[in-house]
């Protein structure tokens, strides 16, 4: 599976994941309290420059940012008509700033670093018995491993429909996909336990 991480050696790449995530969270909170569209426009410009400093390229950046930016844009246009130009500009610049900063953090942090950080953050939850921190990395690995498998099963079910001249319908595709996929849970769980990956249970 492709990730959104981009190789590089910029300042953001070298900063630790924790610093980036904390900075992102704090900026997100700060942005809610800034209500001047002018100040927010400057913030958006600064975030844009930071993102540009990663040298991802116009085309690739557009592909990455387009879906979120379009939603922001549509909502801003909607706000312009039903509320006010002030409200529309605030929404547009505030969310664009947040989007650019978030995308910059995603592009400069590897999956491994993220998982280490999440595992660390889950330690206090482990102490109160809510989750096992090590399970988080394991589960993420499992999902990434299963996606191509499920995709292959989906294609096989579609082909089975075509071979029988049946029109593919949501229900006749989803039900066999779910049953076939979940039926392998026992084997996989046994394999994980046999290797003692989760330690003592």
């Amino acid at each position: 599976m492709n990730t959104l991480y981009v190789e590089g050696n910029s300042l953001l790449h070298r900063l630790s994941a924790r610093v980036k995530l904390l900075a992102l969270a704090l900026t997100g909170i700060a942005l809610i309290f800034i209500i001047s569209p002018f100040a927010l426009a400057i913030a958006a410009l600064a975030a844009g420059l930071l993102y540009a400093s990663l040298r991802i390229g116009w085309r690739q950046s557009w592909l990455r940012l387009r879906p979120v930016f379009l939603t922001i844009f549509v909502v801003a246009v909607f706000a312009f008509f039903v509320s006010s130009a002030h409200e529309a500009a605030t929404t547009l610049f505030r969310l664009t700033t947040l989007m650019l900063l978030a995308a910059a953090a995603t592009a400069t942090t590897t999956i491994g670093d993220f998982i280490d950080e999440i595992t660390l953050a889950a330690r206090p939850l482990e102490r109160i018995g809510l989750v096992k921190a090590a399970d988080i990395g394991l589960s993420v690995g499992l999902v990434i491993r299963f996606v191509p498998e499920v995709m292959t099963r989906y294609r096989a079910i579609r082909e089975a429909h075509a071979a029988r001249g049946l029109k593919p319908r949501p229900l006749t595709l989803a039900v066999p996909l779910i049953i076939l996929t979940l039926k392998s849970a026992d084997e996989i769980a046994a394999a994980i336990d046999a290797r003692g990956i989760r330690g003592q249970n």
Partner: peptide, 17 residues
């Protein structure tokens, strides 16, 4: 249990697909 964890992970993969 490990089985529950695997079931949740398998279903997450289904949602992704």
């Amino acid at each position: 249990s490990t089985r529950d964890l695997v079931l949740a992970a398998l279903f997450a993969a289904i949602i992704v697909v």
